[in-house]
Nucleic acid binder design. Structure first.
Lengths: 216, 216, 216, 216
DNA sequence: TATGAATGAGTGTTCATTCAT
DNA sequence: TATGAATGAACACTCATTCAT
């Protein structure tokens, strides 16, 4: 009587649904938050596939049962995190300003890089799950594709607005670099040197698009 | 994951040793090749963690027993593949020629990108296992770090030889882009457009380092 | 890694399919038989729902893993047993001869009762699962409905052939009695007195339909 | 199934004692009634074993905590229902009048069948739990055996009083038919046709015992 | 009296690995 | 050299029961 799927249809309250179906009180919301934090941490440490629910509840100082009170499965937790992450990325996409050939353009590029890295610090595993395409859940993947497409599109527009030759393939390469840069920084814990590295990188990228002369 | 490695038993033939310790006859070599090919394919489809030995032996039209005749574990198969992959990458590192500010530099960059992508097409999952750092095996990781360091070092040298400002962080970003570019191309199956994309990318990168004007 | 549903479609051999998909050798068939026997025993003792897979493999002196090599789930084992049971019942239905108002009719009724009880001794839990309608599996239920309908139909025909007033409701009552009679006998282990009880019951039923005078 | 029954603690109010040990106010009685009704419904739908406390409290629009305020366990709820059911059945046993070979005998048989079916409509799952012997609780089982024995005994007496050959085995078969008849009717929702079916059945049974000719 | 949150033992299922043939 | 069968530790998920409010 354990793992079988839910049977009849007479059930109305389905435990384990974060975004919908249940009003949570203050305590409930707090617990759910604890679990999401812990999930993020464990996914980051072990990777999504290798992470065990047991690790997560242990990190959250909660019990197995509690986990399933808020999430239907490990995948469902990933989905909840993906929703949050997509939200942040779309906010970032919406905030991208003009990227011109002058030093203001470098600054804006740097700001985007920095903000992306910040999001990555928290949601890295979600982003990687998206890019590696190794999670089954349809909705998770759809969220990722949309968020990434949005940022890529807006960056391309801003660059082309300023006359840079930003065809799709180049933009894809830019996005790739963005992600891997963030990944390395976060995973190696290079927070201290982040600032100068961001400077350099923004500069190189800017030069790649605008062939301008800039200080290294 | 459970039973202890049977090493150094009194039998003469120790099963599960890929590259070393056993002379294989023609048939044996063929079977081992089948398994490695199948492993690569399954790792690519499912990812290393999600891949089951059963999937691999099925893809290779072999049996469970046979698998363990050639590899001590799933990890051992990864190790064998990592050895091959590291070999190719080090060969690539050894072959990198001068990368100057002129169009010859672009060509050489393009050649490296192309060759890296070719290797990635076969060994992608190995490379990702390295970069994600989610495999426990020490030797596997050491191989990866060495291969990548070697390429990064040589690229840095060639660029600096030509006066480009190639500090470590920038080179890391370049490597990152290299890997993600290859990943996207291989995973999306964009082989048709690969050629022009390589042109563009080589060009942008070159410009990033040399601020030169170049044809798209 | 553990309970998740099968993912990709690249899998061909699905372990755990009794009736189809795999050729079993002698040893495999023996093991599968052991598991089905044990399943039957445990279902009988504990009831289908309360029966744990662990009980079954323990009774069969097999391991957990072995069970899932032959059956996809506990429900799948029930399905396999249901197929066997339906086969026996349909054979019984096919063998029902004329049931006339004379003592030959009593004999034939008695034979049917006896044979049904014999089948019930082995497959009781399956039959009860059918009648209680508390198993989800569609196919299991379909098999049961068909087998029961067949016997009921043929009994009704034979009785009406001899002029007995066998309307559907009465036949349903007869089937009900048949099942419960078998259930009590088997569950109470009243094998010793079975013979005389069968005599009496066949007699009473016969009289119910033919109002004939018969010895008690 | 896990935590020990908290009995005889120093508190005055011992939660989880249905029929005894606590005076309930109007509201309390109402809540307890809601839970018993809901329990009956859910047991009927899913069967005792598959029924979850969660289903019951949801059907009763109450909370988990409330349930355990009135019942010590799921089994305790079944016990409470069994007490009610046994009461009704014993009342039925007490009301059985003479069953003679004439049409009055048929009428009385019909009345018993009808009343039994009525009780079954509400308490079916309890009755089945008794007959299947798959509930551990001693008291529950004792109640069932007593109620059934009582009815069987009184029916046997009434029949023998009128000269019918009602030996124990035949009476057992009669009881079996009684139960299954009620089960089918209730579970298939055949309320509309119940009346005529009762007529027919009473008639056939009567004939089985008295070999008389009667109108259908 | 009532509630929703928390708990954790129990159970089904998977899959890397070993073994007998 | 190859195979299919067997194993069991590991893990996801459930649900009766308790607790704090």
């Amino acid at each position: 009587m354990s793992a079988p799927r839910r049977r009849g249809a007479s059930r109305v309250i389905v435990p384990g649904s974060p975004a919908d179906s249940r009003e949570l009180r203050a305590q409930g919301r707090r617990t759910m938050g604890k679990l999401m934090d812990a999930g993020m941490r464990v996914f980051a440490e072990r990777g999504y596939h290798a992470a065990r629910v047991d690790d997560i509840v242990h990190a959250a100082r909660a019990s197995h049962g509690t986990f399933y009170l808020y999430f239907a499965s490990k995948e469902d937790l990933l989905r909840a995190l993906a929703v949050e992450c997509a939200g942040e990325l779309e906010a970032l996409a919406g905030s991208v300003g003009p990227i011109g050939p002058d030093s203001n353009g470098i600054d804006e590029l740097r700001r985007v890089l920095e903000q992306f890295t910040r999001t990555y610090r928290r949601y890295g595993p979600v982003v990687r799950a998206w890019l590696e395409g190794q999670v089954d859940d349809r909705e998770v993947n759809r969220l990722g594709v949309r968020a990434f497409t949005e940022i890529a599109t807006v960056l391309g527009e801003r660059l082309r607005d300023s006359g840079a030759p930003a065809d799709p393939a180049t933009i894809a390469a830019l996005m790739a670099m963005l992600e891997r840069f963030a990944y390395f920084h976060v995973s190696r814990g290079l927070d201290a040197e982040e600032s100068t590295t961001l400077d350099t990188l923004a500069c190189v990228v800017h030069r790649g698009f605008f062939r301008a002369t800039a200080a290294a």
